[in-house]
Design a protein around this nucleic acid. Structure first.
Lengths: 216, 216
DNA sequence: TAAATAGTGGACAGAGTCGTCTATTTTCTT
DNA sequence: AAGAAAATAGACGACTCTGTCCACTATTTA
């Protein structure tokens, strides 16, 4: 227990701690990252486990030692990709100085960086739900957890902002974020992030200054 | 040519007209509607042609007489489903009396009817693009055509409204519509249509009355 | 050094995939 | 009623899919 970072996963010995579980060159990590690339790029159903092990450079038995089924692998990919994305997204967001209003608008600048990436393939959760719909509970659960993370953050910003209905404000931003992602993916145009940002600015102006019609 | 409605499709005879091509009980229509149900509900890749013919109650040879491949069947399903949806959507919209502003807001009421349908499975084009991404040109082309239809209508409303930038207004509504669809699908909550409607109302108030900050 | 662990390559089963084909029957047209 | 067209059931080939299993080889751990 010399290094705090080492305390991550217990080995089968039961008495020692190991780096194995977070070693990026381990077979498990190679399979996970290969699966992420292929699943997200070509679709979950369209990618076979043979393609995954070929990309990972591992044996099939190794894959099934770490993941009991393809379905579990899909769930693990979503969990890992979601965590990576949130780390990046909220990390970028934490670099933004200023009040809640500034942070909420910066969301769309950061979003645009993502949408403009030449390897952008859409939101993995939106894509997964689109592909499986009601047929896969694990996928839905992963998507729900991801959405809950975002909504919690959005609601906190709305409260800090003094929004009259923080939940509704968070829902509004969810619509704008999802809309920007899907419109950008469909039209292959990251500029939809700016369109969403303008809508967000108008909305924020309204809830902080009150409705315009009052002035009449 | 006694009945005008009969003049729709030419048979292989070349000299007569027939109801066959629009007969909903024809094998082609049964295959198309069965494929639509299964593809949209369970995904395109996850649904095999055997499942389609079982649902349609036809022989496999019949399917391949009408569609040369599964890919062509997918494209035909998207084309048909898109046309059906637009017919319904713009049909409902044509029942709305009032100026462009009223029609643009009514979009979200009509959208909510769709999202609240217990059989709602998301937008078939958003789902298809999510599943195939760059891997299927026919799918992308069908999605592009569908989007173009919507954008054309939105832009016409924006022009009638006297919006300063009709294209940008149409893009804003595209974000709100896509966002409402995806958020509703993810959260299984058609109420996101109302959230999007409120955003649209705020946006319309801003572009028709000018920015609030001017008043200061 | 000896035991435990992790990984390899490939064969394999059983089911499913798309698409073709034949032989037969039903439906329509004249 | 006769001939043309459309649809049928189902076998089939060639391939891919997931998941299991085996004998074998590195790599760790004690």
């Amino acid at each position: 227990m010399a290094d705090a970072a080492a305390v991550v996963a217990e080995t089968t010995h039961g008495t020692h701690w190991s780096f194995a579980a977070i070693d990026p060159s381990s077979a498990r990590e190679r399979i996970l990252s290969a699966a992420t690339r292929l699943f997200c790029h070509h679709g979950f159903a369209a990618t076979g486990v043979d393609a995954v092990i070929a990309e990972a450079g591992t044996a099939k038995a190794t894959l099934y030692k770490h993941f009991t089924s393809k379905e579990e692998l899909i769930a693990a990919v979503l969990e890992a990709e979601g965590a990576t994305w949130r780390e990046w997204f909220f990390g970028r967001l934490s670099q933004v100085n200023g009040p809640a209003q500034t942070r909420l608008l910066a969301v769309f600048d950061i979003l645009e960086e993502w949408l403009a990436d030449p390897h952008f393939y859409g939101c993995p959760f939106i894509n997964a739900v689109a592909e499986f719909d009601t047929d896969n509970d694990a996928v839905r659960a992963a998507a729900d957890r991801h959405k809950a993370h975002l909504m919690t953050w959005l609601k906190a910003q709305a409260l800090e902002l003094g929004a009259p209905d923080a939940t509704e404000t968070a829902r509004s931003f969810a619509v704008l974020i999802d809309g920007a992602i899907v419109a950008a993916q469909n039209a292959r145009d990251p500029g939809f992030a700016r369109t969403a940002k303008a809508l967000a600015a108008t909305y924020l102006a309204q809830i902080t200054q009150g409705p315009v019609s009052r002035a009449t």
